[in-house]
Nucleic acid binder design. Structure first.
Lengths: 209, 209, 209, 209
DNA sequence: CATGAATGAGCGTTCATTCAT
DNA sequence: CATGAATGAACGCTCATTCAT
């Protein structure tokens, strides 16, 4: 299904509101009001509020998954480098699509809509398989250790990144960085997070310190 | 505030339902029905549905935080051992209070109720300070490295554990463990997770492989 | 199920409006407004608008069917007399419950709600059986002819009476009775209708002129 | 107003749906969908949903009334024969236009649209006058009795026939005719009904048994 | 003459909460 | 301290209709 400009406008307004107030607490009137469209448009375009949520998932997951496959096929990068890129791209995506990742987190927890559940399972499976290949490649080349639990490793990456996102205000407060400009803080945060996750992956995957 | 048996009954029924369907999608009729009390009781006992959520947080956070302080004061355990215990206790808690941790995760994301936000910030601060002390202690004893980012480390622990909890069905599917009995699977999972997080902490905190 | 005063109030207001505007064109707001109750009461008391319609049928059909059985058992009346009473009682009922008979007519035509369909089928069957017995009794006593089609006979009674009800304004107009007071007209009408239907039944059932 | 093929197509689709679900419960989307025309066409062609209903009445009533006048003028048929033909033609029409007669019945009951009300009153008046003439003719010729109430007589014919139509499934059930093929049943039904109504008219109009 | 896109109004229903008892 | 009855507000959604093209 292709979405036109107005579809996108509604989807992205919904994304903002779902992320801020949660799916259930967001009313179609909220969305219509903020997107500056008629209330009836949501049902007219998407069929229902729930289908709008599904459309949001289709929209974002569709644009998110691109690019992962190409990394794997690249023959000039070492497995270790590829893992680093994988991590950085993930962090980039989460920061760029904060709102969507928050919604996705909650929807995974609440687990209600079967369409979305299946979408997420599929994505997870695909990601796990790709990372598995990448690790297998590294193992064959002798740079990665044997016996790596891919799902645990993924959980650490996903979990750490989203947790940092959620805890950002707290992080700032705890480390006395309230005065740092928002932009600067975000950049610092991103660098630190990137280094942190890479370090963990190195520890799990290689024999280096 | 002290809760009597009926309070607790309502709170814990609410916990189950909030975890399964989300706070907003759970109705006071659901809760009253399942807890086998009159609908009016929820407003009567707690003031409102939202106050019930706050009561749930008070109830669980109160019982959860106990025991962390005592660990820190213990003079017979090495900092490394203390970290291991900290990790295992956290995993234990999350597994034992799955439902509540799911609710807490979503509430952190949605960020609406100021009472709960403050409660959570306070908990995080306390936890971060305790772990900070623990790490400082290890640093003074020369067993932990300098320059450890406590919040990042905490985020990894919290994030990994909750992510594994959420991904449990997927983990089972991906690793072809569908036939393993639920109990056996949970135990295996817990051991692997524990070892995984400990390994990460060792890598971040010490110079060992 | 027992209905209290407020139930009855709502049911009878609904009856008026359904008869005047039709079921679909009547809104719960109409009913609530005219019955002077809160809108939510309709769902609260009856579950839904449709269940309210079912409640109306239960209410009226329950009160209507009484008395027919007793007529049959009466040993002092001749079959011919019983038929006359049956006719008069039916006319009386239709006039007294004009609104309900109109609703019933339309619901039979539209045929949607299975609960109501079954209710009506049951009533028809019971009525047809009772009249059948009455006719059989007359046949045994030699006062009624053989080979009477009960359903056709019933259809003539029901059809004629309801048609007259519907055509009342036209009847008045056609017979230049516009000036006659409403009450007088109704009485005249009823008498003529009664004589008319009785004459038809006599013609079908007996050998008299 | 003249209707083209598409007009007719829409009108007759609407007729089917109005008969099945009722006017209010039928949506213009239903009609447009089933008639395979654009939704906007209904308003565009007819002005509104209500005007479409009016168009349906114009369409059917126009085609139905033809032929009644000619019968009256016929000099070769006896008044009795004419009445028989009148009855048969009415039964034929109702069976052939089941759907429309159902709609007409409900619209008479609900009484909302003044255009339709007037249309129906006019038809009734014309029919009553024609039948009146026919009866007067028979009275002059001495074959019909004096003091016949035309409206009551008409009500019996119209009421009986429509009631039989409505009760057809019940009739079949009650007389254990479930196994009879639909076509055969309809024919039998029609013959019986015709004989039944003719008998009634004979009883009312003449002195014969 | 025809239509896809769009809309204001209002639909039946559900919600958390209140209140008299 | 406890509760059945009741309610105002708001929910998601559908309706017949309109209008630019």
């Amino acid at each position: 299904m292709a979405y036109n400009d107005k579809h996108i406008q509604i989807i992205e307004t919904a994304e903002q509101l779902f992320a801020k107030k949660g799916y259930e607490a967001t009313t179609v009137r909220d969305i219509a009001g903020q997107a500056d469209v008629n209330i009836a448009m949501i049902s007219y375009y998407f069929g229902s509020k729930e289908k709008l949520l599904e459309a949001l998932f289709n929209h974002r997951l569709g644009s998110i998954k691109m690019g992962v496959e190409s990394l794997l096929k690249n023959d000039f990068l070492s497995p270790g480098k590829k893992v680093d890129i994988l991590i950085d791209e993930h962090i980039e995506r989460v920061i760029h699509h904060k709102g969507f990742y928050k919604i996705m987190l909650c929807e995974q927890v609440i687990n209600k809509n079967p369409v979305i559940i299946n979408l997420l399972i599929e994505i997870k499976k695909r990601n796990a398989e790709l990372i598995n290949k990448l690790i297998n490649d590294g193992q064959k080349k002798g740079v990665f250790k044997k016996n790596v639990d891919v799902v645990l490793l993924m959980s650490t990456m996903l979990g750490t990144v989203i947790q940092v996102l959620i805890n950002q205000p707290f992080y700032r407060d705890f480390n006395n960085l309230k005065k740092m400009p928002a932009k600067k803080f975000e950049e610092t945060m991103q660098k630190k997070l990137s280094a942190h996750v890479k370090k963990i992956f190195k520890a799990i995957l290689t024999n280096e310190g």
